[in-house]
Write a protein that binds this DNA or RNA. Structure first.
Lengths: 340, 340
DNA sequence: CTGAAGTGATAAACCGGTATAGCTCCTGCA
DNA sequence: TGCAGGAGCTATACCGGTTTATCACTTCAG
C-alpha cells in the first residue's frame, strides 16, 4: 500500500475513522489501550496526514510565508536572509510548519502576493521584513486579516506583532566607541531613507552628536548598493575636512568604502576608521578586517517564528518582543584618529 | 461575503457547482454564454480557489520544493542561491506554483524532508542541487516516486531529469586563457571532492595540462570555506616553484586567496593571476577586481522550473537540458606572468 | 419515423482528514 | 431498582473543490 489513509488504519485496527483521528491527535475519546494500538499501526504503516485534507478540515495549512521585496541582484550577498531563514525554520520545524518563500520586485507585488495567499488559504500567517515609514503592507494585512509578525520594527499602533532589535542603542554604541577613540568627525553612510531602521539610525547619530562634541556628523542616504556606498565615500573623502571615521549601514557598503579609501590612498585605520552596521563573512575577508556590529540573525528568526505561531493561534494577541542587543565586534579597521 | 466558494458562485449564477468548476477550469461541459457569465461573477466576487480543497480533489498541490543542505553560515554570501531562487520563481509564477524552501544541515536530513513531503503530499516535485558522486538522494526520490529535476549535474542513468551547464568546457576556457597569457604553472583550488562538478572540473584541468604544456597543474580540494581557501593559497604560495596563476572554484575562496597574496606581498596580477569559477558582486568589490566565470544563474533556475513542471505533468518524461555556456569575464586580476 | 450521437447541464460521489451528535455500555449513588 | 453521568466508540456531516454518472433535449443520419 503506497499511501495509507486513516481509513486504512481504521480498518486494520477494527475501529472507526473518528477513533483513529482522536488517537492520532491525542484528544480524549479513546482508551489508552486502543490509542496505543492505533498509534502503533499508524507508525508501522508509516502514515502521515495528508496536508491538504487536514487543511481543508481544520482550516489551517501549517505553512507560513515570507515575501522579500528586493531585486534579486542585491540579495544573497548579505547573509542576513540566509540566517534569518534558518532561524525561522528552526522555530517552525518544532511544529513541522513549512515556509513559503517568495522574492518579488516591489511592495505592490508583495501585497498582491498576500492577497493571493489569503484568498487561496495558502499560509496561516506571514513575516514582514524591511519595514518602511508609513508601510502600506500593515493596512493591507489588517484588511486581509492575515496574522503577521513584523521583523525589525514596530507593527504600527498596536496593530501587528513584532520582533525588533534596538537600532538606536546599537548605533549609539558605535558612535560612543568612535568618540571614545577620539574621533570628532564621524560620517554615517545610511541606507534607503524610507526604511524605518534607517530613520532610527540617522536620528541616533544626530542626537548623539552634541553630547559627544562631534564637529560634524552627517548621515548620507543611499540605496544600499555597493555603487552608492562607494560614491558617497568618495564624496566624503574628497572634502577639505574629511571625516576620520565612517559608519556604514551595511557590510557591502563598508567593503565598497574600504575599496575607495585604498584607491584614494587613505589608510585604514590610520587615516580613517570604518565600522559596518552588520556583520558577515565579508567583513572578515577584508584586509584590514572590518569592525562590525554583529546581530544574532538566526535567533532573530527563531523568535519571529515563535511569535508568529502565537499570533496565528490567537490573532487577538499583540506581542512586541525585543531581542538581544547587537554587539560591536572590533577588528582591524578602527583606531584612534591620526594626530596632526 | 468574506471568502466566496464555488457554491456561492453557483447560487448567484443559478447553476450547479459542477458547472462552475467546468467553467473556471476551461473544460467542456458548459456553453460559452454560461461560461462567460460564471467567469464574470467569479471575477466580481473576487473568487480564488481554496488551495487545499483543490489539492485534495485534484491530487496536486501546485507547489514544488527546494531543499538546500548546507550550513546556513556558508549560505548567503554566495548570491548563487538568491539568483537561482528568483529564476525558479520566475519559471513557476507563470502557472502560479509556489515554492517551499528548506535549509537543512546534511543530506540525511534532506532525504527525510523528501520523505515527509511525499507522504504529506506537500509538493508536486522537487529540485535537487549540489549533486554528489553516488548521490543517495537519487534513489530515495525514485523510491518515493517524487518527480525531480537535478540542477548542475546528470540525473543518474536515465533516472531523473536534469538541467546542467558544461563545467568541463568552462574550466577549459579558463585554463586555455591562462595558458594563452603565458602561464605554465597553474593551480586549482577546488571545492568539496564529493561534488560531481568538483570532479568534472578537476578532470578538465588534469586533461588539459599536457596539451597546453603546463609544468604543473595541481587541483587541491577544500570545503569551499574562505578559511581553507586561504590556507591552501598560503601553501601554494610558499612553494619554491609557486604557481603564477590560481583558479578558485568559488568567488569566496578567490577573495580569500587574494587576501593571502596581499598579506604575503605577492602582487596581483603582477606575480599572480587569480580567476574565480563563479561571479558575484564580491569579485567586483575587490581591488583588483577579479576575473571570473559568469553563469546566468537566474536563467538556470527558470529553465529548471520549466523542466520540473514538465516532469510533474508527465513523470515518464526524461529531460536533460544543457544550458547556455558560462563566459569568462576578464577584469583586473589576470595578466601575463612576470618574466624572470 | 426511429435510433444514434452530441450538447449542456445536474446530482452525487469522492478526496482525506476533522468535528459533532448520538449510541452503548458500565459505574456509582440515591 | 432506577437513573444520571461519563467513558469509549460509531456514524455522519462537513470542508471546497474535482470528477463521474446520468439525464433532458436537440440534431441528424438512415
Amino acid at each position: 500500500m503506497a499511501r495509507p489513509t486513516i481509513a486504512d488504519i481504521a480498518d486494520r485496527a477494527g475501529v472507526s475513522k473518528g477513533a483513529v483521528s482522536f488517537a492520532l491527535n491525542g484528544r480524549p475519546g479513546v482508551s489508552d489501550a486502543t490509542r496505543a494500538r492505533i498509534l502503533q499501526i499508524a507508525e508501522q504503516m508509516s502514515w502521515r496526514p495528508h496536508s491538504a485534507a487536514r487543511a481543508l478540515g481544520a482550516s489551517r495549512v501549517d505553512s507560513v510565508g515570507l515575501v522579500i521585496a528586493r531585486p534579486a541582484r542585491t540579495l544573497g550577498v548579505e547573509p542576513f536572509f540566509a540566517h534569518l531563514l534558518s532561524g525561522l525554520q528552526s522555530g517552525l520545524s518544532a511544529r513541522s510548519i513549512s515556509l513559503q518563500l517568495l522574492i518579488v520586485e516591489n511592495t505592490a507585488a508583495e501585497i498582491e502576493v498576500y492577497r493571493r495567499w489569503a484568498s487561496e488559504h495558502r499560509v496561516d500567517g506571514v513575516i514582514l521584513v524591511d519595514l518602511t515609514v508609513k508601510d502600506p503592507r500593515i493596512d493591507a494585512l489588517r484588511e486581509l486579516e492575515l496574522p503577521a509578525v513584523v521583523i525589525g520594527g514596530r507593527g504600527g499602533k498596536g496593530a501587528l506583532a513584532s520582533v525588533w532589535a534596538d537600532d538606536r542603542d546599537a548605533m549609539l554604541s558605535i558612535v560612543d566607541y568612535l568618540a571614545a577613540l577620539g574621533h570628532r568627525r564621524i560620517a554615517h553612510v545610511a541606507g534607503t531613507p524610507n526604511f524605518q531602521h534607517t530613520q532610527r539610525r540617522i536620528r541616533a547619530v544626530r542626537d548623539a552628536a552634541p553630547r559627544l562634541g562631534l564637529v560634524d556628523a552627517p548621515s548620507l542616504t543611499t540605496d544600499f548598493s555597493d555603487a552608492e556606498g562607494a560614491a558617497t565615500t568618495r564624496k566624503l573623502l574628497s572634502q577639505a575636512d574629511r571625516p576620520t571615521a565612517i559608519v556604514y549601514d551595511s557590510d557591502v557598503m563598508a567593503v565598497a568604502g574600504l575599496g575607495v579609501a585604498m584607491e584614494m590612498g587613505v589608510s585604514v585605520p590610520g587615516d580613517l576608521s570604518i565600522v559596518a552596521f552588520d556583520d558577515s563573512i565579508l567583513t572578515q575577508l577584508m584586509h584590514p578586517a572590518l569592525t562590525a556590529l554583529s546581530r544574532d540573525t538566526f535567533e532573530f528568526g527563531r523568535q519571529a517564528a515563535e511569535v508568529l505561531l502565537e499570533v496565528v493561534a490567537d490573532p487577538a494577541k499583540v506581542i512586541n518582543l525585543r531581542t538581544a542587543d547587537p554587539v560591536l565586534t572590533v577588528r582591524e579597521s578602527t583606531a584612534p584618529p591620526a594626530t596632526h
